[in-house]
């Protein structure tokens, strides 16, 4: 599976530093953070799909995917916007006739949004290395939340 930017929502504090960083590096932000019910914030950006559906309707092959890497050639782009309609996550945006989506900041070791995240909520990795970790942490947290804090530490005696 290709590498992508993933969010650990238990860590996200909704500060939008990722948006600011992306905006500075790419002129417009390709990641967006929103707060839900005042209780959690969720950043969303291109999922870097293994089979990117956005490439499917592209009439001139401007968007293509080879060996799991999405390529975009602006010269061939007709600006028809069909790709934005084919993305199940709504993360491809057509602005001034150019497709804007996360390209993982080529030329930088870590995408700017990941590097800047104060809470360490954004992770740049393969999805496989991710799932277990977050699930385990979540289970641990749930246990803690449901039980009263156990007496711990020095004064156990």
């Amino acid at each position: 599976m290709p590498e992508a930017v993933y969010a650990d929502l238990s860590r996200c504090i909704g500060c939008r530093a990722c948006e600011l960083a992306c905006e500075r590096e790419n002129k417009s932000s390709r990641i967006s953070v929103k707060v839900l019910s005042g209780l959690a914030a969720a950043p969303v950006s291109c999922r870097q799909c293994e089979i990117p559906l956005c490439t499917a309707p592209c009439p001139k092959g401007a968007l293509s995917c080879e060996n799991g890497k999405l390529e975009y050639e602006a010269e061939n782009c007709t600006g028809c916007g069909l790709c934005t309609l084919a993305c199940p996550f709504g993360t491809a945006v057509l602005r001034a006739g150019i497709i804007e989506r996360c390209n993982l900041c080529p030329g930088m070791e870590t995408p700017a949004c990941v590097a800047t995240c104060p809470a360490g909520a954004l992770i740049y990795t393969e999805p496989g290395s991710l799932g277990e970790n977050i699930r385990q942490r979540r289970a641990k947290r749930m246990n803690r939340a449901l039980e009263p804090p156990a007496p711990a530490g020095r004064r156990a005696e």
């Binding site: 948006e19 600011l20 590097a115 800047t116 104060p118």
Partner: peptide, 12 residues
Amino acid sequence: VNEGSLCPKGNA
């Protein structure tokens, strides 16, 4: 302190 991270204000 920040281990590379920066908040939105720092970014701006």
